[in-house]
Simulated assay, not measured.
Amino acid sequence: MDSLGSRMHQIAAAHNITPLLRLPFTIIGQEPAAKLVLESVYAHIAMKTNKPLLLAFAGLSGHGKTELAKQMGEVLSLPLLEVDCAQARNEWALLGSVSGYRAQEDGSPLNNFLETQNGQRCVVFLDEFDKTENKVRESLLKVMDPGMYRDRRPQGQEVDASKCIWILASNLGDSAITKYHSQKLADLNNDDVGKVSIEPLKRELAKLFTDPYEQAVVAHKFLLEIQDEVRLPICTRKPELRLVGHAHFNIVGDGVLCQHVAEVGYIKELGARSIRNAVQKIGNDFTLTYSKVDMEVDESFNKGPLHRYTVQLRSIDKTTNEVSVAEDGVTVIEGTESMK
């Protein structure tokens, strides 16, 4: 990442994820991808999101998807389960058989792993996820979205999987990635590669997974939820620990912004969950902007005015926009301010 201020180190240390900040230096030749993973995982944990984190790794075989997942697990000292989805034709292949069927008592590697990691942070790497059947994906979504799962073995209990980091690996987008690399990155040195925006590539890849259906109203609902969440007071004591807070979003052009989020982020197979994930990316961007300050936070901040941030679309080039989050300063807000 760029400069890592004392606030980011404070938050990382409080959540025991300081080694994560070294992730971009552990993978050779995958600096942009490692940086995105670092930002996503850091922001998800710092915001204390009570849903599992879903990441999609797209790219050519043999170019580091599995290695990046393993390195992320290692720097965080997290157990990792790698699952080959290519041969999964039904949900039993991944989650195990249900009551009344043979071998139910054996469960499955995924079922048993989730039960073992009950309530703990862990990583599940689903290789070749794009090759699964719709019914397999739907069964997994029931685990990924609420973060709760029932062990399928006899006398199985409810399992808390809310801290699980799910990585969905796919070979889709090979040609788009190869073309972007040859046009934008191939002739650059390592220092300059980090300065190139990969937002156009992310949008191109998103088209492979998305259905252009209008979901702006849903995006707006989720955005308001994050707006409320970041206004919560700072708390430095466990278990309530919350070091990201006492802030306010000013959303500029909320209608256009939410339409953009819906168009870029909606995935038909994931439904509203994909919109929630896309909106959470804005929450992640806020957390990173909030963290890049060389000043630690404490509960005395709650006595002062809310720190104000502006969320809006900005143009990258003539054809590409992205959502940006920028700090404005502080403002005193009484009640709920209407969005401008």
Rank of each mutant, 00 (worst) to 15 (best):
D187M: 12
V217A: 11
A219Q: 00
L223Y: 08
L205F: 02
L188T: 03
H248I: 02
D254R: 10
L201M: 07
R242V: 03
P239C: 05
V244N: 03
C235E: 13
Q227H: 15
E240T: 15
C258H: 00
R242W: 05
T210I: 03
E214V: 01
R242Y: 07
D228Y: 14
R242L: 06
I234S: 08
V196N: 10
A186F: 08
E225T: 12
D254W: 09
Q183K: 13
G245Q: 09
D192I: 11
N190D: 15
I234C: 07
P233H: 03
E225F: 04
K195R: 15
L232P: 06
E225G: 11
Y213A: 09
S197D: 09
A247H: 06
V196Y: 05
K202C: 07
N250W: 05
Q215D: 00
H260M: 04
V256N: 12
F249V: 04
I226F: 14
E229R: 10
Y213N: 05
D187L: 09
V230M: 07
S197F: 02
H260Y: 14
L243G: 13
L232Q: 15
G253S: 07
Q183R: 13
F222W: 07
L232T: 13
A206P: 06
E229H: 09
Q183W: 02
I198F: 05
P200S: 03
L188E: 01
T210R: 11
L257F: 04
H246L: 01
N189M: 06
F209Y: 13
D192F: 14
N189E: 12
L232C: 11
P212E: 00
N250G: 08
D211A: 13
K195T: 13
V252T: 06
L243M: 12
I226D: 08
K221T: 09
P233F: 03
L223A: 09
E229G: 00
K238D: 13
G255Q: 12
H260F: 14
K202H: 13
Q215Y: 00
N250D: 14
V244A: 04
R203K: 14
I226Q: 11
Q183Y: 06
Q215R: 05
D191K: 15
A216K: 09
L185F: 10
G245M: 05
N189G: 12
E204G: 03
K207I: 05
Q183D: 14
R203H: 14
N189D: 15
P212H: 01
C235V: 14
F249T: 04
E204K: 10
E199W: 13
P233Y: 03
N189L: 04
N189W: 07
I234R: 07
T236Y: 01
A247I: 05
D187Y: 12
D211I: 03
A186V: 10
